[in-house]
C-alpha cells in the first residue's frame, strides 16, 4: 500500500506540471481580459515543436522546451493579432485556434509520429533522493518540476506585486478606466496573450517530453480544456491554481497506477474521471460562488476607445 502511494504521489507532478503551466498562462490571459479557448491548440503546437526539436537537435530537453515555448508564442501572436488588434470574437477565434493547432500538427507532425523518446530524466539528488518515501515523491523529480515552482511564484509576483501586473489586471477589469489612466490597453492585452501562449506551449512540450515521451496526434486529449476549467476553479489566483493542478494531476496519475495494479475497473470509464471531475468542480463553483464572481470584469470583451478625432 505504501509503495502504491509512493508511486502514485511520485507520478503526480509529471501530470500536474503541464496543467499548472497552462493554467498559469491562461490566468495571465484572462486577467488581461482575453479569454483564450485555444489553449489546447497552443499546447499541441508546443508538444510537436518540443518533440521534433528534441529529436533533431541532439536530444536536449532544454532545446525541446525552448522550442515548445516559442511554438506556443507564435500561435499566440496569431491569436493576439486576431482578437486584440482586429478585435474579433474571442470565443470563435479561440475554438478555431484549437483546430488550427490540431490540423497544423497533424499535417507536419507525420515525420515524428510515434517515435518514442527518452525525454526528461528524473534527477538524482543523492542523499535526499534516498530518503524513503519522501525522497521518491519530492526529491526525485525532473528539472522542469522544480523549475515550475519559481514560474508559478513569478506569475503571482508579477500579477500582484508589480506595477505592470496591476496595470494588466486593471486592463482586464475595466479597460475604459485603464485607458483613461494612460495604460496602453492593447499592448498589455497583446503581451498577456503572448505570455500565456508561451506558457501553454511549455505545458504541451512538457507533456510530450516528460509525461508521454512520444508525439502522437491530438495527444493533449482535452488537457487544455481542463486547464481552462481550472482557471475558474482557481478563481484566477495562481496559488489556487497550484492546488487545482496537483489535484487533477493526482487524478490523472492515479489512472495508470490502477491499471498497473490490475484492479478490475472498466478502462474507458476510468479515463472519463478527469472530465467528469472537472465538470463536478464547475458545478461546485457554480453552486458555491454564485453570489460573487471572481472573473475579471471585462473578460471576453474587445475594447474600442471610441474617441473623437
Amino acid at each position: 500500500m505504501i509503495e502504491f502511494l509512493a508511486n502514485w504521489l511520485a507520478f503526480t507532478p509529471v501530470f500536474a506540471v503541464p496543467l499548472l503551466l497552462a493554467t498559469l498562462g491562461l490566468i495571465v490571459n484572462e486577467r488581461a481580459g482575453v479569454i483564450n479557448l485555444g489553449a489546447e491548440g497552443m499546447m499541441l503546437c508546443g508538444a510537436l515543436a518540443g518533440v521534433a526539436c528534441y529529436i533533431e537537435f541532439g536530444e536536449s530537453t532544454a532545446v525541446g522546451m525552448t522550442a515548445a515555448g516559442i511554438a506556443g508564442l507564435l500561435v499566440a501572436f496569431l491569436f493576439a493579432f486576431v482578437v486584440v488588434v482586429l478585435r474579433a470574437d474571442q470565443v470563435v477565434t479561440g475554438i478555431t485556434i484549437v483546430f488550427f493547432g490540431a490540423g497544423l500538427t497533424g499535417l507536419i507532425g507525420l515525420r515524428w509520429n510515434d517515435t518514442a523518446i527518452a525525454g526528461f530524466r528524473k534527477l538524482d539528488l543523492g542523499l535526499l533522493s534516498g530518503i524513503p518515501f519522501f525522497g521518491k515523491v519530492v526529491f526525485a523529480q525532473d528539472a522542469m518540476v522544480y523549475l515550475t515552482v519559481p514560474i508559478a511564484f513569478g506569475v503571482w509576483y508579477f500579477l500582484f506585486r508589480t506595477r505592470a501586473g496591476l496595470n494588466l489586471r486593471a486592463v482586464g477589469e475595466n479597460p475604459q478606466a485603464a485607458d483613461a489612466a494612460g495604460i496602453a490597453v492593447d499592448a498589455y492585452r497583446f503581451w498577456a496573450v503572448a505570455a500565456g501562449g508561451a506558457l501553454c506551449g511549455l505545458a504541451g512540450g512538457y507533456l510530450a517530453l516528460a509525461a508521454a515521451k512520444i508525439w502522437v496526434n491530438e495527444m493533449t486529449h482535452g488537457r487544455g480544456w481542463i486547464a481552462i476549467a481550472l482557471v475558474i476553479f482557481a478563481r484566477w489566483m495562481p496559488g489556487r491554481a497550484v492546488f487545482g493542478a496537483l489535484l487533477f494531476g493526482g487524478i490523472e496519475a492515479l489512472i495508470p497506477r490502477i491499471f498497473a495494479a490490475g484492479w478490475p475497473v472498466p478502462q474507458y470509464f476510468l479515463q472519463m474521471t478527469p472530465f467528469l471531475v472537472t465538470l463536478g468542480v464547475l458545478v461546485w463553483v457554480g453552486v458555491a460562488g454564485k453570489r460573487r464572481s471572481a472573473a475579471p470584469g471585462a473578460l471576453g470583451l474587445p475594447y474600442v476607445r471610441e474617441d473623437r478625432w
Partner: peptide, 29 residues
C-alpha cells in the same frame, strides 16, 4: 495527406473571415 488538412483549411478560412469582421465593424482612421 492526413485528414488534419481539412481541419487546418477550415480553421484558416474561419480565422480570416473572423478577422475581416474588423473591416465590417470599424472604420479605420
Amino acid at each position: 495527406l492526413p485528414q488534419a488538412l481539412v481541419s487546418l483549411i477550415q480553421a484558416i478560412v474561419v480565422m480570416c473571415v473572423a478577422a475581416s469582421d474588423f473591416l465590417v465593424r470599424y472604420r479605420v482612421h
